[in-house]
Amino acid sequence: MMSLTRFVELVETHGADPNRWPEKRREHVQSLLVASAEARAALAQAEKLDALIARHCRDGDEEAATARVLRRLQALPAQRRGLLPRLLPAALLEFDLAPAWPRFAALLGVAVLGFAVGLSDTGMALTKHSASAIIGSPNSSDSDLSLILFEPDPLSAMR
């Protein structure tokens, strides 16, 4: 038999309508309701709450508002039709090929930036001097450390 606590949790999650309860849990409720006045009171209260909310959410008279919105939508703008639909045959468009162009543009931008940084002199290469300044150990194997930490600039490694 389901416990009262689990039953209260059930109606709080799904409401008082048994048709909305998970089927497996529905089977265990009947014996509890027979045995427990508290469970019956909890169900009665949940039914009242459901009725109040449903009454508030009942279909109102939206006829006038519907007519207003439809009037404002009488003159429709041109639909968005990209280049891709015109170039590809209809069968291919059945697949979700819609390009997410902002994301592709961002990816391309990042790739171009990466190339630019990599090809420029202001990349990650450090001179021996600056590497040792960072680690504060002038006698250490700076050249080894710079090899480990950074892609060595061939010119600076020879200084």
């Binding site: 508002a65 207003r68 919105v69 404002r72 939508l73 429709l76 703008p77 639909q79 968005r80 039709r81 990209g82 639909p85 979700d96 819609a98």
Partner: peptide
């Protein structure tokens, strides 16, 4: 009410404008 009408109108406009990109997933 006024905001509700504007919102629903905007939503329907988006349906119209982007219908070519909608997929029944």
């Amino acid at each position: 009410e006024a905001d509700a009408e504007e919102i629903v109108q905007e939503a329907l406009l988006r349906v119209w404008l982007n219908a070519t990109r909608w997929r029944p997933t």
